[in-house]
């Protein structure tokens, strides 16, 4: 028995249902012994983060909902005294609201910032995996149930293994063995539009060559809008050359893909 969350970022519309459902479940509701009430606002056991990138009009947004990772090797458990944080048989990591009182170290131990400190109750609090619901007949937690696009899934690792094949975890380097997996987190992109200023026409079918830091190249062509895109790039410094028959070629160097550069409307002069 080992439960995991799998979140498909490519299917996440950023609707925030997961964040809101979590609050609806836990703010002001007392689920002791699983969790004390979450304050009305201010804590985000499930937090939808938005990531706008690029510049107008080549702007893309993806959303990453973040929650406790229910780590296999959880620093919060290690930091807790008298077993105040425990791992259940199903793998969910839960803070005991009685035993954890006053233990700020638990909140500080989590490298993901998933634990919030409740001043009023002097209590560390976080996502429980909705264990109180799972133990009382629910198949999935509130956040998963509320997801309208099925971007967020929860279940036995074994049952979800197809989805896990290409999944990653956030900050693997923390080495905590997260059990919340993500699919399709987009890489960097670079784009632009090519046009002929003399005719005021886009240039369709122009060759665009991207030269990477290691000297290898990627190639694409401009589409019906004169647009070109390189997607799923790693963070590195690259250069781009635009070439079309009858035009003087243009090269842009020193482009940092981490900024998702938009070369804008690139005018190609006729030869």
């Amino acid at each position: 028995m080992a439960k995991v969350f799998v979140i498909d970022v490519a299917r996440c519309s950023g609707c925030h249902n997961c964040q809101l459902a979590c609050k609806d479940e836990h703010c002001g509701n007392d689920w002791r012994p699983y969790a004390a009430p979450q304050p009305p606002t201010g804590q985000f056991w499930c937090k939808v983060t938005d990531h706008p990138r690029g510049t107008i009009p080549k702007v893309k947004i993806h959303y990453i909902p973040v929650l406790c990772n229910h780590c296999a090797d959880a620093p919060c458990i290690a930091a807790a005294e008298n077993g105040a944080v425990y791992r259940r048989e199903d793998g969910l990591v839960v803070i005991d609201p009685e035993k954890a009182a006053g233990q700020k170290a638990i909140a500080e131990a989590c490298p993901y910032g998933a634990v919030y400190w409740n001043e009023e109750l002097a209590l560390p609090q976080k996502c429980t995996g909705c264990a109180h619901l799972l133990d009382h007949g629910s198949a999935v937690p509130r956040c998963v149930e509320a997801c309208p696009t099925d971007a967020m899934k929860f279940g036995e690792e074994e049952d979800l293994k197809d989805l896990l094949a290409d999944a990653v975890v956030l900050h693997e380097e923390y080495g905590t063995g997260p059990r919340v997996y993500y699919r399709n987190i987009p890489g960097c992109f670079l784009g632009g539009l090519v046009y002929d200023p003399a005719e005021e026409e886009v240039v369709i079918g122009a060759k665009v060559i991207l030269t990477r830091a290691d000297g290898t190249t990627l190639e694409t062509e401009t589409d019906a809008f004169g647009d070109f895109w390189f997607k799923e790039l790693p963070e590195e410094t690259v250069s781009v050359t635009i070439r079309a028959e009858g035009f003087t070629e243009k090269t842009f160097g020193g482009l940092n893909t981490a900024e998702c550069p938009n070369l804008g409307d690139v005018a190609l002069e006729r030869e």
Binding site: Y195, E200, E201, V202, A224, F225, G226
Partner: peptide, 22 residues
Amino acid sequence: TPQWASEKCGVKPWTIKALARH
């Protein structure tokens, strides 16, 4: 013309033509 429209709507003439043709 696309040039006429571009001044009003802020879309570049080449993009207007490309959209129309596409």
